[in-house]
Amino acid sequence: MIPPRREAVSGRGVMAPFEAFGRLALVALEFHGRCVALLGLTIRGLFRRPFDGRAIATQVVRVGVEGLPVVLLTAVFTGAVLALQTYTGFQRFHAEAWVGSVVSLSMLRELAPVLTGLMVAGRSGSAMAAEIGSMRVTEQIDALVALATDPVQYLFVPRVLAGIIVLPMLVVLANAFGILGGYLVAVRLLGANPVVYMENSFQFLDLNDLWSGLIKAAAFGLLITLIGCQQGFDTRGGAEGVGRSTTAAVVLGSLAILVSDFFLTKVLF
């Protein structure tokens, strides 16, 4: 099994700042290493029996179906705000016609995957950390081991798999609703021509824009769920520890999305 995290010892004196920095580096490296190790175990768990389809379905419902309202609401308002903002900007040089293109392009390539990822990290990543964390502190994970069940396989595989599957699905709908939000603002509020607006929304899109957003989303799904599960799995220190893990899952998950987004964007285009 994976050894548990250990607490760092604090130091004093001249070396304290270096120690603090070293500790930070160690924690970062350890987090990175833990994630890689747990990912390895998760991938191994994927190919070991039994394969638990029902658990995956449960997670798909929890992450996807139950997260849908939040994600769609976010998408609609993002699209709407984007349309409003670009309109006021573009109006200054009479390019209002391109509001639709800007909204759809930025939704598909960037905003839908990232905002959906952030929402899911806040909603489901934290829930996973809390659930697995409280299982850890109430010895339920030990009970799993005692019942000859690999906890990583039992807990991580369905969640991580669900994350990878569900995020792109959510992003597809977020794309549609984001464009819809922009359309509503542009046509209803700003009086744009509905047909021209729709035409401009799609005229400059490439299928690659859609696919790259979905690939990003799958990567975010993996990161969010893996970090959520990892934080829960490594919970120490009772109820307070569960709280810490939950917070860390959201913070690290969101950071992972934003940082990886840059590199994914760089690799994908």
């Binding site: 379905a57 419902v61 794309n175 929304s201």
Partner: peptide, 24 residues
């Protein structure tokens, strides 16, 4: 759960189809 997933997947497929057709 199955029905929920079914509905969800269907909505996603429709969304995907609309986007792909519109883009192309």
């Amino acid at each position: 759960a199955t029905a929920k997933i079914g509905l969800f997947a269907m909505a996603v497929l429709i969304g995907l189809a609309v986007l792909v057709l519109k883009i192309e």
